[in-house]
């Protein structure tokens, strides 16, 4: 269950400078847990008291997980998970 996670520029320092990281996980929750296992420094960037920060949006193949099953959204092999800052537009 290989998932590609796209890392935005401001998080790359905590991800070993990588723009894309391969993780494993059958849900978004599990994939992000694997991401943090590989790069623990990303933890405080993405989560606050165990909850995803409100201004980080997570997309599975370009669909916002808030319109899917949030952190329980199932993942299948080869899908892409993008982490994108939410403060834009209007």
């Amino acid at each position: 269950m290989a998932i590609q996670v796209q890392i935005p520029t401001p998080m790359r320092e905590q991800a070993g400078g990588k723009a894309e990281v391969t993780v494993n996980g059958v849900t978004v929750q599990a994939a992000l847990a694997d991401l943090l296992r590989q790069f623990p420094a990303l933890g405080p960037k993405l989560f606050d008291n165990g909850r995803l920060r409100p201004y980080v949006n997570v997309f599975v193949n370009d669909e916002d997980i808030r319109y899917l099953d949030e952190m329980n959204t199932p993942l299948s092999d080869g899908q892409t998970l993008a982490l994108i800052p939410a403060v834009a537009g209007g």
Binding site: P8, D62, D64, I84, P85, A88, G89
Partner: peptide
Amino acid sequence: YDEVNRLCTQIALKYGWGFVNV
């Protein structure tokens, strides 16, 4: 619009262009 907006954030982060609302 929200999908357009998300795409613009990705473009702005990648290419450094001046997106007025990003």
